[in-house]
């Protein structure tokens, strides 16, 4: 039993888990980009003057915020092919779409509230300089709002990283998947397997943690007027 806790076992485990890093990272990047895009589209639509557009995006946001990622992932995985008879292609895409839509909904609230929190005086100053509503958004409101958004985007990207572990449940070969495969053959190694997996995820999270801290500093700087 003792060799279970020896360091040498890590050299056995780490290369196995390493095989899953590619999938974890590719899902992370793709779903994060998808979520960012959704967040700006939905966030701006919710601020639009168009009633229907506002209600529709509101429905999307509440739907995805009101249910959990795991439910959405399984629903897309099992139910969409049944309901619509369409195949979303690969499980990789299902993972990316589920995670992207879910966190896009959360992030759209960040976008919306950041834009709303730019002070009224900024709108007025831009109007006094005769900017059009597009110019006002593009040069004055948006750049300030983005600075305010950055820390939350950092935090949610870490959430997205954590969320990627769910794709192992629909058979994608990510870090956790290879961990589970190894555990099923050598149960006694499982403490080290899962610990190593957690460390893998933590290493992936570290740059995001530091970027988030940096973003917090930027956001603080841009806020004073």
């Amino acid at each position: 039993m003792k060799e279970v806790l020896t360091i040498s076992a890590i050299f056995e485990i780490a290369p196995q888990l390493w095989r899953g890093v590619q999938i974890t990272v590719s899902i992370l990047i793709a779903s994060a980009l998808f979520a960012y895009a959704m967040s700006f589209i939905a966030g701006l639509c919710r601020l639009s003057n168009n009633f229907l557009l506002r209600k529709l995006t509101g429905f999307y946001v509440e739907l995805f915020r009101g249910t959990s990622l795991i439910v959405q992932l399984f629903w897309l995985y099992y139910a969409v092919p049944m309901l619509f008879g369409i195949n979303l292609g690969s499980n990789w895409w299902i993972g990316v779409i589920a995670i992207g839509l879910n966190y896009g909904a959360y992030l759209s609230e960040v976008v919306r509230s950041s834009i709303l929190s730019v002070s009224q005086g900024q709108y007025e100053a831009a109007t006094a300089l005769n900017m059009s509503s597009f110019q006002r958004m593009r040069f004055i409101i948006f750049p300030q709002a983005v600075r305010m958004m950055l820390p939350e985007f950092g935090n949610y990207t870490i959430q997205i990283l954590k969320g990627t572990s769910l794709v192992s449940l629909i058979g994608l070969t990510d870090i956790l998947y290879y961990g589970d495969v190894m555990r099923s053959t050598s149960l006694s190694l499982s403490p080290l397997i899962y610990l190593t997996a957690l460390i893998f995820y933590f290493i992936l999270a570290l740059p995001l943690i530091f970027l988030t801290r940096k973003a917090e500093k930027i956001a603080k700087k841009g806020a004073a007027s």
């Binding site: 870490i158 954590k162 956790l176 957690l198 995820y201 995001l208 943690i209």
Partner: peptide, 9 residues
């Protein structure tokens, strides 16, 4: 910053 799913496992 690590997945709760892995922590559960």
């Amino acid at each position: 910053s690590t997945p709760p799913l892995v922590q559960l496992f």
